[in-house]
């Protein structure tokens, strides 16, 4: 019990619960099944990105290029499948998008290892390269007619139910992908030596090498895997929006990173959990959604999100180490 109380995730869950109850009281529409399904759907893309960001942050790096990779993979995949007039399963599209994402992620890993530059600089550069390449050589027009498989995927739902109004609601199938990714990442981080190597690298790179980790291999995994997840996230985004817009996604990087930090990951590496990241994403989605429901202008969403991030991180910092940490951060 005492252990539970010491955990950041516990506080996050409390904040979330209180918030959900409060909003539900203010506007009963919030707690309807339809809206809950909607919340799940909205947190899927951000959540998939967040899992990748969590891994990178934990390893002590930072990746700014994931949104560009997502946009690149989904747009190229859609155009390619349309060009060959592909009629088959959506899984082929997912495979293609994730392979493209993986390739771009490995490009990051190679650059980081060869150039030996800070990951922030490398991925900032590569994000620009990916995006520029996409717009210059692949195209700038929005694809409004997606391949049939993708359309079918976007319609697929679970727990379907027809409301009195005649409207059918259900949980978007893409949420299942998100759940699978959550379990996979949690397993890797907690129960594989590779995952522990990621924590070790983020905690003390020199010691990680001395203890026998092959840091190069760990980094290739990290950036490759982030690329792969971003490819999947991009394609889910396209399916959800029912179009492939090459201008989408880019610009969401900071809010995803913020959600992960909100979830307790340390921006300097070594700390972070999947549960925290997932809760962080959900909290931000809930705030955005509720502000819309309460009829508050969307500019205020940004203010509210920022406020919650600062407040939550501050609470943990103060609670955890008392004055010491707060002092250490400026000393």
């Amino acid at each position: 019990m005492r252990k539970l109380l010491g955990q950041h995730e516990f506080y996050l869950a409390m904040i979330l619960t209180v918030l959900v109850i409060a909003i539900g009281l203010a506007n009963p529409a919030f707690l309807t099944r339809a809206n809950l399904f909607d919340l799940c759907k909205s947190s899927t893309v951000m959540g998939l990105f967040a899992l990748g960001v969590l891994i990178v942050l934990t390893s002590g790096g930072i990746d700014i290029s994931f949104a560009a990779i997502g946009a690149f993979s989904m747009y190229v995949t859609s155009r390619l499948l349309l060009a060959v007039d592909f009629q088959g399963s959506v899984w082929v599209a997912f495979l293609l998008a994730s392979l493209i994402g993986l390739a771009l992620g490995l490009f990051n890993a190679v650059s980081i290892n060869v150039l030996r530059l800070p990951t922030l600089i490398v991925t900032l550069g590569s994000a620009s390269v990916f995006r520029g390449f996409l717009l210059a050589f692949i195209g700038t027009s929005i694809v409004n007619r997606l391949p049939a498989g993708m359309i079918a995927f976007s319609r697929r739902t679970l727990f379907e139910q027809t409301l009195a109004t005649g409207e059918t609601i259900g949980l978007s199938f893409s949420f299942v992908l998100y759940l699978l990714a959550i379990v996979a990442v949690a397993f890797v981080l907690r129960y594989t030596l590779l995952g522990r190597g990621i924590y070790a690298l983020g905690g003390n790179a020199e010691a990680a090498e001395r203890v026998g980790f092959n840091l190069r291999r760990v980094q290739f995994f990290i950036y490759g895997f982030v690329g792969l997840l971003s490819g999947v996230a991009g394609l889910v985004h396209a399916c959800t929006m029912r179009n492939a817009n090459p201008f989408d996604l880019v610009g969401t990087e900071l809010s995803v990173i913020a959600a992960v930090v909100l979830g307790g990951a340390s921006i300097t590496g070594g700390r972070g959990t999947v549960l925290g990241a997932v809760l962080g994403v959900f909290l931000i989605v809930v705030i955005n959604n509720s502000l819309i429901l309460l009829g508050i202008p969307s500019y205020w969403q940004k203010v509210a999100t920022g406020g919650v991030i600062i407040a939550s991180v501050a609470i943990t910092a103060i609670r955890k180490d008392g004055v010491r940490h707060a002092a250490a951060s400026w000393r």
Binding site: T192, R196, A200, A207, A208, F213, G269
Partner: peptide, 24 residues
Amino acid sequence: LFANLTVAENLALNTQIQSCRRFV
């Protein structure tokens, strides 16, 4: 040592790596 990891893990990490395991 790894400041971010527990005492137990700091102690055992090397053994785990030496034994060429994949899982913890």
